[in-house]
Design a protein around this nucleic acid. Structure first.
Lengths: 223, 223
DNA sequence: GTCTATAATTTGATAGAC
DNA sequence: GTCTATCAAATTATAGAC
C-alpha cells in the first residue's frame, strides 16, 4: 500500500470536519467538490472513494455536525437545569457564534438547505436531531418547550447574521436571550428547581408549572 | 418599438415575482439565470437589461419580498394589538407556510444566503427589515420583544421545514406558537390592553410590564 | 428591448496510471 | 487509495441581429 493504514478513515474525518466548516461558511450549493476536497488536503478524484456523491457528503456532514453539537452539550459543566440552560444560552447566543458560522451550529447555517434536501437526508437528520431534542427536553421538562427554545435560538443566530453591523447583531441576540431567560425564571420561580431530589434535573415539571401558573415577568433583566 | 410601452417594467416585476418564488423554493445559489428568466417568460439574454448581475437581482428580490410581507401585515383586519398579533401568529406559523416556501416569507427561506451576501445587499435588506420591525414594535410595545417574536417565528418555520413528516412539522410549529401566545397573554393579563384609549395600540407598555411583573404562565393552552 | 448564439469558467463525476 | 487528466453539462455574462 502506498498510504499508511487508517489513512482513508482519517481523510474521511477530515473531509467531514473541513467540509463542515466550508459548507457552513459558504453554503452547500455554493461549495464545489474541488473546494471541499482541497480543504481536506486531497484532490477531487479521491473524493468519490469516500462518498458516492456530493449529496452523500451532505448527509454525512449533517449527522457529524449534529453529533458534534451534542458533544458540546455533554461538556456543559453545570448540574442544575437552570445553570445548564443558562450556560447554553450564553454559548449559543454569542457574538462569536454569529461571526463564525463555520465553527458553529449547523442549523442556522444549513437549515434551509436541509429543508430542501431529499427524504433520505432529512430522515437521517431528523433521527440525529431527535437525540438533541431529548436532551433539551430532559433539562427543560417539556418537549414543546424544548422545541420552542431551539427555534428561538436558531432563529436568533440566523437573523443576527443577516444584520449588517455588530451593534444590531448584538441587539438581536440579546433580545432573544432575555426572552428565553425570562421564560426560564418564570418557571424556576415557583417550581422545584434547586430543591432536594431535583439536582441536575429539569427546570420544572410541565404539569406542575401549568397548574401553579408559576410565571412572573417577561423581561427580568435590565439592559 | 417592437414591444409595447411598459413592457420592460412589467417584465421586471415578473422577474421579481416569479424569481422570488423560484429562489425561495430552490435557494439563490441553486437557481440559475436560465431558470430565473424562463420563469418570467424571457430569455437569459434579456435578463441583463433588467439587472446588472445575478447578485443585483438578489438585492431587488429581497427588497421586493420584504415589501410584500409588510403589505400582508397591512392587510391584517384586526384593530386591537392582541388580536392583530394572534392573527399574524396563525398566519405565519401555519402548515401552509411550511409547505410552500415559494409563497412565504423570505427570511426562513433565504436568511442564511442573505447573511452571506455582500455589504450592499445587507444594507438594503436591513433598511427594509427595519420598517417591519417598527410595525411589530408598535404592536408589541417593545422593540426587543418584536425581535424576539420575529426570531422565534423565523426559526420555527425554518426548523419545521427541515422535518421529514407533517406530524412533526405541525408539532414544531405549535410549540413556538403556544410559546409566543403564552408571552402575549402574560403581558395582556395585567396591562391596559382593551382598556379605553388603547384600542389598536400596543399590547403593553414595556416599562409598565416590567414594573408590575405582569406575567402569569408559560404554557396557557392545553394540547 | 429581446432574441439567438456563444464565450469563458466552473460544475459534478469518471477513467486509467501508479 | 489517490493521483492526473478529462468528460459532459451547466454556469454567468456578453455580442450582434432584428
Amino acid at each position: 500500500m502506498r498510504y499508511p493504514p487508517g489513512h482513508k478513515e482519517e481523510k474521511r474525518k477530515e473531509l467531514l470536519k473541513a467540509g463542515g466548516t466550508l459548507v457552513k461558511n459558504r453554503g452547500f450549493a455554493a461549495s464545489g467538490v474541488d473546494a471541499l476536497t482541497e480543504a481536506a488536503g486531497v484532490t477531487s478524484g479521491a473524493f468519490y472513494s469516500h462518498f458516492a456523491s456530493k449529496n452523500d457528503l451532505l448527509k454525512a456532514l449533517i449527522e457529524n455536525e449534529l453529533q458534534t453539537s451534542r458533544e458540546m452539550w455533554a461538556g456543559n459543566p453545570h448540574e442544575s437545569a437552570e445553570d445548564w440552560i443558562g450556560y447554553e444560552l450564553d454559548r449559543y447566543l454569542s457574538m462569536s457564534h454569529v461571526r463564525h458560522p463555520g465553527a458553529g451550529c449547523v442549523l442556522p447555517a444549513l437549515g434551509a438547505e436541509i429543508a430542501r434536501a431529499g427524504e433520505e437526508i432529512r430522515q437521517a437528520y431528523a433521527k440525529e436531531l431527535a437525540k438533541g431534542i431529548e436532551v433539551l427536553t430532559q433539562r427543560l421538562g417539556d418537549k414543546e418547550l424544548a422545541w420552542a427554545f431551539l427555534c428561538q435560538m436558531v432563529g436568533a443566530i440566523l437573523m443576527a447574521r443577516t444584520m449588517p453591523d455588530q451593534k444590531t447583531q448584538r441587539a438581536v441576540l440579546e433580545s432573544s436571550k432575555r426572552f428565553l431567560q425570562a421564560a426560564i425564571s418564570q418557571m424556576a420561580g415557583k417550581t422545584n428547581v434547586g430543591q432536594p431530589g431535583n439536582a441536575g434535573g429539569t427546570i420544572g415539571n410541565t404539569r406542575a408549572a401549568r397548574a401553579t401558573g408559576a410565571a412572573r415577568k417577561i423581561v427580568p433583566h435590565a439592559k
